[in-house]
């Protein structure tokens, strides 16, 4: 079915998208929490920043990432020198680009589900002896779970399909940053590559659909328990 190169592409894509959502989830929870509950005037600014990747051309996002996190970038240079962390032209760069592009899609459903939680339940938990962290872990998070799940799936799909920012920031290096969309694009560019591209297209559709179906199934199970 798939040859070694194609298989590598699929594995790399899953690794890149998986890493992207795994690392952005804690931050997305924190930001969604802030947006849902804070009355600070910084809320608007944070909200706008989070949504920026959604409205900017992805190539612009990729370029900005290059400027800031490239090897000679403002932060990238320091990171490479002191911590040995390199993003540009590296698979971690593809993951970072995917994470940033998927971030607004992850934050939004989490935020909505947090806003839907009756603060009364949390106050009740506190009166029953639960410290704030425990309230969060035992009441807030479980009640927000459907939203968290939706955010994960959306962000995963977005990271999986990320093209513009990735190719600008991490380039199109086979085995390193050539994820599904980049591979499909590359195959289409060479004469006779259409069939290989078509196979990868089928794989993308299958992976994305499975993620959606899985998320829906889990969400239903949660909802059935809660209503």
């Amino acid at each position: 079915m798939l040859d070694a190169t194609q298989l590598e592409v699929v594995q790399l894509s899953l690794k890149v998208a998986g890493t992207a959502v795994a690392f952005s989830l804690p931050l997305a929870l924190a930001v969604a929490w802030f947006l849902a509950r804070s009355t600070s005037r910084w809320r608007m600014i944070v909200d706008a920043l989070v949504h920026l990747p959604l409205v900017l051309p992805p190539v612009v996002t990729g370029y900005l990432l290059l400027v800031v996190l490239g090897r000679r970038g403002l932060i990238g240079g320091w990171l490479a020198e002191h911590l040995g962390i390199v993003f540009a032209f590296h698979w971690t760069g593809a993951a970072l680009a995917g994470a940033i592009m998927g971030f607004p899609l992850m934050v939004r459903p989490i935020r909505l589900s947090l806003e839907a939680i009756d603060a009364g339940s949390e106050a009740a938990a506190a009166t029953l002896g639960a410290a704030p962290v425990m309230v969060w872990l035992t009441v807030t998070l479980p009640l927000a779970l459907p939203g968290v799940l939706a955010g994960l799936v959306l962000a995963f799909a977005r990271a999986l399909g990320e093209f513009g920012a990735t190719i600008t920031f991490a380039a199109n290096i086979p085995g390193e940053t050539r994820t599904l969309p980049l591979a499909i694009y590359s195959f289409i560019q060479v004469p006779g590559g259409e069939s290989q591209a078509a196979q990868l297209i089928v794989v993308s559709i299958a992976v994305s659909l499975s993620a959606l179906v899985l998320a829906e199934w889990v969400a239903r199970r949660i909802r059935r328990r809660q209503t």
Binding site: G120, S121, A124, T127, V139, L143, R225, T227
Partner: peptide, 13 residues
């Protein structure tokens, strides 16, 4: 302190 509110405020999950 045990508190019983106007609404039961049970944990839905």
């Amino acid at each position: 302190l045990g508190v019983v509110f106007q609404q039961p405020r049970l944990f839905a999950h």
